[in-house]
C-alpha cells in the first residue's frame, strides 16, 4: 500500500526454530491499536484500576488466609513475613551481596555471550564463506538444550564462578548470533542498491544501512537472550555456591524458610522485568524510526 512498508526489512518474523522454543515477542502495530483505544477511551482509567485490583486482591487474601491460619507458613509465608524478611536482609546488607553476585554472573555471561554471538553473527551475515564455516556447526550446537550441558559444565569447570558464567554465555550466544546473521541477510537489497548508486564506502554501507536495517532483528535476539540468560542463571546458581540469589534459595530450602524462597522468586521476577525494560529502552533508542515502536505507550 504505502511504499514505505515495502522498504522495511521483514525481520520481525521470529525464526521458527526460536518460536518453537517458546520465544514470544509481541509487536504492537499502532495502526491496529488505535481504533480499539478510541473505543474504550472512557473506560481507560477504570481498566487500569481493575488491572491492578486483581493482583492486589490476591495478595490481600493471601495475607488474610495466612493470618487466619489457613495457610501454613512452611507452605506459603504471608506477604508481610516476606516483606519483613526482605527488610532484615536489606538491613544487614546480605541481600545486596547476594544480588550483586548474581547480577555480576548474569552481566559477565551476557556480555561475553553477546559479544561472541554478535561477532559471529556479523561474520556469517557479511560473508558467505564465514557462514559456510560457522553456521552448520553453530546450528548443530544450538540444537542442544543448553541446560543439558550442566553435567559437562560441572566436569569442565568444577563448581566455581566460571561454570556459571559459561552457562549464561551459552544461553546468550545463540539467539544473538542467529538474529544478527538473519538481520543482516534480510536487509532490503533495494536499499543496498541505493548504497551502490550513491557511492557509499564500505564503512558507510555497514553503519548507515546494514546495521540499522538489521537492528530490529538484533534486538529481538537481545530480548530473547535476556529471557534465556535469566533461566540459565537460575539453573547455574543451583550449583554449589556460597553467594548469590541461588545460594539464598538453597540455604532457605534446607531450613524450610519459605519466606526467603518466595522473596527470591520475587527478586528473579524483578530481574526479569528490569531486563525487559532494558530491551524496551534499547528498542526506543535504536528503533525510534520504526512505526512499530514509535509512540509505544505501554
Amino acid at each position: 500500500m504505502l511504499p514505505i512498508s515495502t522498504t522495511l526489512p521483514r525481520v520481525f518474523d521470529i525464526p521458527d526454530v526460536l518460536s518453537k522454543q517458546g520465544a514470544s515477542v509481541t509487536m504492537k502495530d499502532p495502526r491496529h491499536a488505535r481504533p480499539a483505544k478510541r473505543l474504550h477511551h472512557l473506560g481507560e482509567k477504570a481498566f487500569f484500576i481493575i488491572s491492578w485490583f486483581v493482583p492486589l486482591a490476591l495478595v490481600f487474601f493471601w495475607e488474610l488466609f495466612s493470618r487466619l491460619g489457613y495457610l501454613a507458613p512452611q507452605i506459603l509465608s504471608a506477604p508481610s513475613t516476606v516483606a519483613k524478611t526482605a527488610w532484615n536482609l536489606v538491613i544487614d546488607g546480605a541481600l545486596f551481596t547476594h544480588l550483586g553476585a548474581s547480577l555480576l554472573r548474569a552481566c559477565v555471561g551476557f556480555i561475553i555471550g553477546g559479544i561472541l554471538g554478535f561477532s559471529l553473527g556479523l561474520f556469517a551475515g557479511f560473508s558467505k564463506l564465514a557462514e559456510a564455516v560457522l553456521d552448520r556447526t553453530l546450528q548443530m550446537m544450538r540444537a542442544i538444550p543448553f541446560l543439558a550441558l550442566l553435567p559437562l559444565v560441572i566436569i569442565w569447570f568444577g563448581i566455581d564462578e566460571s561454570g556459571k558464567i559459561f552457562l549464561v554465555t551459552m544461553a546468550v550466544l545463540f539467539p544473538i548470533y542467529i538474529n544478527t546473521m538473519l538481520g543482516i541477510r534480510q536487509v532490503d537489497p533495494k536499499l543496498l542498491e541505493v548504497a551502490k548508486v550513491t557511492g557509499l564506502t564500505v564503512w558507510s554501507r555497514i553503519h548507515k544501512i546494514i546495521l540499522p536495517g538489521a537492528m530490529p532483528s538484533i534486538l529481538t535476539g537481545v530480548r530473547y537472550a535476556l529471557a534465556t540468560a535469566c533461566m540459565a542463571l537460575v539453573i547455574a546458581e543451583t550449583l554449589a555456591t556460597d553467594k548469590g540469589i541461588g545460594f539464598l534459595v538453597m540455604d532457605a530450602r534446607e531450613f524450610l524458610q519459605t519466606d526467603v524462597i518466595i522473596l527470591t522468586l520475587i527478586i528473579y521476577a524483578v530481574l526479569g522485568v528490569l531486563g525487559d525494560s532494558l530491551a524496551r529502552f534499547l528498542e526506543r533508542r535504536l528503533l525510534a524510526w520504526h512505526p512499530n515502536y514509535a509512540g509505544d505507550v505501554h
Binding site: T7, K190, L191, T198, G213, M215, H290
Partner: peptide
C-alpha cells in the same frame, strides 16, 4: 556522476530526511 530515482522512493527508514538526502 549518475543518479537514479526508482519507482519506489527507497529512503532509509532509519535516517532522517536530511541524512537520506546527504547519503554518501
Amino acid at each position: 556522476e549518475i543518479a537514479v530515482v526508482f519507482q519506489e522512493h527507497r529512503l532509509m527508514p532509519w535516517l532522517s530526511l536530511e541524512a537520506n538526502v546527504a547519503l554518501g
